Amino acid sequence: MALTKGLFVTFEGGEGAGKSTQMHLLADSLRARGYDVLTTREPGGSVGAEAVRHVLLSGAAESFGIRMEAILFAAARSDHVEEVIRPALQKGTIVLCDRFMDSARVYQGITGNLEPAFVETLERVAVNGVIPDRTIIFDLPATVGLERARRRAASNSPDRFEKEQLETHEKRREAFLDIAEADPRRCRVVDAAQPPDVIAAEVREIMESLLSEGDEPRSSNAEAAS
């Protein structure tokens, strides 16, 4: 079942917050009800962006500085939007994305200490009018999230961001909460320390509320995705 206009929902939060798990649980729930659903992720999600993902998460671009990393993230996002997200929304698909523009605001902007104007310009070019209808922010103390992430990656080396200091991760947590406070219409905060089934039920309620809005104006540009 395709919607008249697609819906774009992003999943944000720090390392180990459970975003990916909850995104796939929601996708399964929606598909069981007959909705067309696409799950995707950032960095990545398209052929070009997946190539850039390896460069970014391996740390290969780190020596070139945070500004270069931010430009690479934006390039990957632009390809992802134009090749995957926008076409899916045009078809009436519900697009669920693990990380999007808010991660850039937090990781490159807040803890990367890049100038707000620079980050905003990159974002505007990269998303090109495609703004999430709803963003779910999974809030978790950095100590808990990092422990989860490190257990998950026990058989692999930590990625570029998992290796960073606890203070940096806690600063990111606060930055995500600041984003939610500044944009309450788009953002919803979920306590990610709750049991997974409780979190999943809360995520479904958030999605149900969005679906029930029907033709009310939403934060994303209908024209931008059409």
Results as ranks from 00 to 15, higher is better:
153 A>E: 01
185 R>Q: 15
119 V>W: 10
168 T>M: 05
94 I>D: 10
211 L>C: 10
122 L>E: 02
177 L>A: 06
111 T>G: 09
200 A>Q: 13
124 R>F: 01
101 M>T: 13
73 F>Y: 14
3 L>Y: 12
187 C>R: 05
74 A>P: 04
98 D>F: 12
165 Q>P: 00
35 Y>P: 09
133 D>T: 11
115 E>A: 11
208 E>I: 01
20 S>N: 14
79 D>V: 01
23 M>Y: 08
1 M>N: 00
27 A>T: 01
118 F>M: 14
141 P>F: 04
220 S>K: 07
112 G>E: 06
133 D>L: 09
99 R>K: 08
35 Y>G: 14
112 G>V: 08
177 L>P: 00
41 R>L: 08
190 V>W: 04
5 K>C: 10
179 I>E: 14
103 S>G: 03
41 R>Q: 14
100 F>Y: 13
94 I>E: 11
160 R>V: 12
203 V>N: 14
114 L>Y: 12
129 G>M: 05
7 L>F: 10
215 D>P: 04
170 E>P: 00
137 I>R: 08
218 R>D: 07
32 A>C: 10
162 E>S: 10
76 A>Y: 01
172 R>C: 12
65 G>A: 05
217 P>F: 02
146 L>M: 13
13 G>M: 10
82 E>D: 11
134 R>T: 09
121 T>Q: 03
163 K>D: 03
179 I>Q: 14
157 S>R: 15
172 R>K: 09
126 A>Q: 07
133 D>G: 08
200 A>K: 06
64 F>V: 00
42 E>S: 04
200 A>W: 00
163 K>E: 14
213 E>M: 15
30 L>F: 12
186 R>N: 05
27 A>K: 12
76 A>G: 11
178 D>C: 14
32 A>F: 06
2 A>W: 01
159 D>W: 08
56 L>W: 00
147 E>D: 15
149 A>G: 00
204 R>T: 11
128 N>F: 06
197 D>C: 06
201 A>R: 14
47 V>L: 07
79 D>F: 00
219 S>W: 03
25 L>D: 07
211 L>K: 07
151 R>Q: 15
93 T>V: 10
164 E>F: 05
22 Q>H: 15
7 L>G: 06
129 G>Q: 13
43 P>H: 09
125 V>T: 11
106 V>C: 11
143 T>F: 00
125 V>E: 11
22 Q>Y: 04
219 S>G: 02
190 V>N: 08
65 G>N: 07
103 S>W: 05
173 R>E: 01
212 S>A: 15
83 E>T: 05
64 F>A: 12
69 E>K: 04
166 L>I: 09
74 A>K: 03
133 D>N: 08
40 T>D: 04
172 R>A: 14
65 G>H: 02
140 L>K: 05
98 D>E: 06
65 G>T: 07
13 G>S: 13
108 Q>M: 03
180 A>P: 06
209 S>W: 06
54 H>D: 09
189 V>Y: 04
16 G>T: 04
185 R>W: 11
191 D>F: 00
97 C>A: 11
204 R>K: 08
198 V>H: 09
221 N>V: 00
1 M>Y: 08
97 C>W: 05
38 L>W: 01
29 S>H: 12
124 R>D: 12
96 L>N: 13
117 A>Y: 08
66 I>K: 13
52 V>S: 02
71 I>D: 02
153 A>N: 06
132 P>F: 03
